[in-house]
Design a binder for these strands. Sequence first.
RNA 1: CGGGGCGUGGCUCAGUCUGGUAGAGCACCGCGUUCGGGACGCGGGGGCCGGAGGUUCGAAUCCUCUCGCCCCGACCA
Length: 572
Amino acid sequence: MRFSRMLLPTLRESPGDAEVISQKLMLRSGMIRKVAAGIYTLMPLGVRVVSKVEAIVREEMTMAGAEEVAMPFVIPAELWKESGRWDEYGKELLRVHDRHGREFCLGPTHEEVITDLARGTLRSYRDLPKNLFQIQSKFRDEIRPRFGLMRGREFTMKDAYSFHADDDSADKEYQNMYETYCRIFERCGLSFRAVEADTGAIGGRFSHEFMVLADTGEDAVASCNKCSYAANTEKAQTKKVPVSDETPFEKSIERISTPGKKSVEDVSAFLNVAPERLIKTLIYETANGPVAALVRGGFELNEIKLKQALDTAFVRLADEKTVKEVTGAPSGFAGPIGLKARLLADFSVMGMTGAVAGANETDAHVTNVSAQRDFKAEYADLRTVVEGDACPKCDGTLKIMRGIEVGHIFKLGTKYSEKLGATFLDGKGGEKPMIMGCYGIGIGRTAAASIEQNHDEAGIIWPKPLAPFDCEVVPVNVKDETVLKAGEAIYTELTKAGLDVLLDDRDERAGVKFKDADLIGIPVRVAIGERNLKDGNVEIKDRKTGVVSLVKLSETTDAVKRHFDITMGRSD
RNA sequence: CGGGGCGUGGCUCAGUCUGGUAGAGCACCGCGUUCGGGACGCGGGGGCCGGAGGUUCGAAUCCUCUCGCCCCGACCA
């Protein structure tokens, strides 16, 4: 491809609203343009990269035994009402009406449509298992779209769904997809981790997220420094600290005045006690009325865990009014003792003695509280793990890293097949719901994650498998006939050799071309300049290492090819 | 949805407080010089100052409403 013919508007500065590196570099390198909040046009260079990711995904999915389908983007409301998600999914689901007033939604995910297909086409255990995937646009009306392709409202996703006659088969496919995902992200040249995850709105029984490790990631991942345990902090657990049941705590509860001291920091500073000696009491509204959740000072309550402990779909921090009703005091003075609400407490509270808690009275706390002696709570794992917590699986400790979720696999079970009546006849003529799995990959997000991981001051450094071109040929001065001719010749030869080549044939100064080349991040650059050409040489530069070498003009193609042979394994 | 901020040539921004009829740098067009790391000179083109209403002799500037975008929070594969 010739640079002069491409729509490749590189920017010297990035638009002011760009936040993260990948977004800035995608904008600057002419890959994307914003159309509306969270909605982008992919320009030619962007299409090239995304196509590379898609090709890898398509290839690996097919090799893993899945088949490609294409489902509609506009979905009738009936299907979503059947699954119950029309009411559950919330505002993220963009609902529209057609000219007859019929209700539709823009598909944010396709369990309903695929399950509808399955119930219409799969009848017998002999038809199973099946794994069907598509690569398609999704729409989720995110509250706050941001970071360019990383968290858009419209985005491209590969989603696959599998159907099985029994758990064993479903588990095997889950494992198969797990391995396939590892191969996909390895081939994309990404440094990633598979972690245990919460299933969220998709539902299901267990799931893994594939996290690309990057400081700008929106998710936090806890991983053990000794064993293979790794989990999203939404879900990550730690060991229970055993309660020492030796000497019973003797001191009796004392009420102390703490005017205006509400937060853990305030109270601990005011009373001069460590935050770890405080019991934090949070009042939540839930589907089944208000609940008090206790956690040790310094820890953070995890709402996802709270939801699970309560087995409810809805929890929300109570507003001031509710807090007053429940505790009899303004927020900041809630405590477990004498509270007339269901009490849940994190394991970190279980062994606390001589602790400080709210007195359920304005401007007052109580001290010398003993968890075992002074109140009765249901204990559960309710807090978010922190750096240095004990690994739940071995004697190692957890460290916290940031990650970008690029893939997510779920074992769904029969949630959708039961609701939509996707059943099959087993060998004995009995009717059973199919067991399902669901496997997603964010295509654009994967490309963005790759940039987060591979860039420097000058621009993007594409790993070879995702690069929009393999090689860029730069005739330094196109007004010099010999230089231009040599450039054209090399371009033709490399193309014939099977490489995807970009020829920068623009009449621009060398500096401009080099800056653009670095920004765009094509792995290998061949520069042809007057001086080197006089000696029969051209210059080859590796974008990643920055290593520059001079080779004979006649050996250019071999030299470039060698560049690929050495490093272009399946894993790079 | 709550709090804050911003909308001025394609991009980055100044001008707004203290109303007087629109600027800079980059980008673009022409000519010349230059030509291996975002050149220079000269000459040009391009802006209903997000939109609507109001105040005023006069509004980018003041007031009201509205739309869009961004940040923090709540929320979320």
